[in-house]
Design a protein around this nucleic acid. Structure first.
Lengths: 289, 289, 289
DNA sequence: ATAGGTTTTGTCAAGCTTTTGTACAT
DNA sequence: ATGTACAAAAGCTTGACAAAACCTAT
């Protein structure tokens, strides 16, 4: 493989040696190996990178941005930031009551990643984090309300049409008294992306309501959800009754309240994607028998 | 929706600005909205009306009669189905738990009418009707939950980006204990279409939360909303305190609870469109002083 | 993702830097990120927005209103934007090789409208239009390639996970020699949104390959697709053989080539949404018997 | 239709900072 | 080769200005 010294690289790229060194220092554009004497030794890949830099410059992009682009081009599509970084961006925007900013973060994310990732690696972790911060008194209730509003709007937007089609039907509802439905919506989306049809009854749904809707719809699954564990206790009897006629799954902290047995209902304790995959498999097997 | 100032309307219609103002004053031919500075803002419908006026004038009809005719022509322009029929379609789909069907009705509607009409003539009346039917025991809670979910998703979808821009800021929140936020979202959309930026805190918002958010955002208006009148009583003192620092408006049945005076807060008792227009005018005048 | 400083944005948009800053300050038209030193950094979406602003200005709309419109267009306020207008936006972005711009149009659209509408009213009509323009020599091959690439990427992004789940299985393939698979992907998405699982064999698929895949999967439907009618003739016999064991549907111009009868295979000649709805109904009835 | 006042909007300037190519000393 | 320096170019903010377009009232 060819190795170039700075003079030769300069000639082939048309960029002065001084400038090449400046680009290295300022933007980290090049990371040449060194000869024993300390001379910079460049590879053909470096030449390519310098040429890309010049192209971007000729295109009118300023040096700092051109360098970032030249480096990024090479990294393939490693342009995507880590989930943590994105979550931080989202958190920042929502904390500032900056709705447009938050939407932009979600837009960019959806353009490059799957719904499962969006939910499992960004939105739901963010909600947990927000809950924790709130418990520690670091986040205000206003921020929590605002963030819920934005995210709910966005998730329900994605949910449009989730009742359409031929898949098995799932009825989704929060237990009585429970108002936090974002996790449930997220689970609905995960089911939808696996072919289910969703009938969504929303927060604070009386169980006779759920039973009534289920009688007509004959769903393959009824999902009950509550963030706080104590929602389950008052309605255990009704949930048992419902489980006699339908397959019932319980999600959220209510799943761990210990007042129901695993042979009565299904507990959803993992992340949305795998739990959605699980119940899908169950239903497929059920249909096969 | 294009918005024209008087000069552009003049160019497109071939009628001098002076004459346009005269027609407005003398015959009420036009009812333009106003910019913050007081400039007349016309819609494409206004342009159409002016053109009809000219046609009648060219036909030899005197100005006063021509104006009457031009206004009258418009009243009979309803090519689409009646709001009642559409509302019935929507109700049918939602009663059947048919989410895709409901979405289709809303899609078609949005394609032909304004947002104000959608809200004022279909969605909100439907919600009232549903509430009434529920009180009479004709609708189940399941249907109400399902319908709310679908409509909330749709309205929040339309709300996307409503924090964007430079217009006056409105903070929107439901009173503590109040979960029905659809009316509030509708009002937010009506404000948005008049240039406001919306910060939405959602259902069941403690008043100190609202106060805190408002301290940072310095909104031109804080809107508090409750469907049931009794939500206001427990928090009257806090609302009064809030009203010392911000202009506060109260909507829903809470507006009629009689525990606050009209010189303390603003009551929103009419339909969303006109109330939104009202507060917009108020803020414009306030800004002028 | 290119990043522009104000000078370059000015050059590309034809608006002076001073004016760009004024528009930002006065109308909130732009919200550039900042470099460490405080320089404004703009995205291609910002460029697009400035261009829309100028278009409205050229149309005679005054600056304040033009800015509101430019922002609204983006926010997806489809109370104003007809499918034609959106298609024009998409076409504009793709013609300029502006990939981020095109993505933004699709983003905003997906947020407010259904997938069916996106495909049936925007993407597929645009493809037809592009084909026509290409035949008339008005569009270059480069443009067609670029547009196809962007759209294929986006559609395949939406297609992520479409093999997952519980619904009936459809095997999708282009006839031998046929390279244009965008229409087929669109049809796959329409099926997916109705609960199907998709097995996608892609462009230029030999029929014995299709037969082999189908033997193992036992799909409820095999969809063969070709944009040019003459692809069908050479393989008629094999298609007939395939139709003995599976329900076969034929889409694209190949459906109208007349070499097969309607009692042998199913012809898909309408728009994707209604054809997808049709075959879904067929399968449901078939399953019921 | 005119007069007199206001709003809107593109442009410019002053004073200061950031960026970036080039140069110079070690 | 390294490190520092420097100066031109490009940006930023604040504030202001003037022409054009609009307002109301007579």
């Amino acid at each position: 493989m060819t190795v170039l010294r700075i003079g030769e690289l300069s000639k082939r790229s048309g960029v002065s040696p001084e400038l090449l060194r400046a680009w290295e220092r300022r933007y980290g554009l090049l990371r040449p190996t060194r000869s024993r004497g300390g001379l910079r030794l460049y590879s053909p890949a470096d030449l390519e990178r310098v040429r890309r830099m010049r192209q971007h410059l000729d295109g009118g992009v300023a040096a700092a941005e051109a360098a970032a682009l030249a480096l990024q081009d090479e990294a393939g599509d490693h342009t995507s930031a880590s989930p943590e970084a994105i979550r931080a961006q989202l958190a920042g925007a929502l904390d500032r009551f900056d709705e447009p900013g938050a939407q932009t973060v979600l837009d960019r994310l959806l353009a490059v990643t799957s719904l499962d990732t969006l939910l499992g690696a960004v939105v739901l972790p963010y909600l947990h984090e927000l809950g924790d911060r709130w418990e520690r008194g670091e986040a205000s209730v206003a921020q929590e309300h605002f963030a819920s509003g934005v995210l709910r709007g966005r998730l329900l937007g994605l949910a449009r049409g989730w009742g359409l089609g031929v898949g098995p039907v799932a009825v989704l509802a929060c237990l009585p008294g429970e108002q936090h439905d974002l996790g449930l919506i997220a689970f609905g989306l995960a089911l939808r992306s696996r072919g289910w049809r969703i009938v969504y009854l929303g927060p604070d749904a009386p169980l006779d309501t759920v039973a009534e809707a289920s009688r007509g719809l004959q769903p393959s699954l009824v999902v009950l959800h509550a963030v706080s564990g104590e929602r389950m206790q008052p309605v255990v009897a009704q949930v048992r009754a419902l489980a006699l006629h339908h397959r019932v799954a319980v999600g959220g902290a209510a799943a761990e309240s210990g007042v129901l047995d695993a042979d009565e209902v299904l507990f959803l304790a993992g992340d949305v994607a795998s739990e959605a995959a699980l119940v899908t498999t169950l239903v497929q097997e059920g249909a096969a028998t």
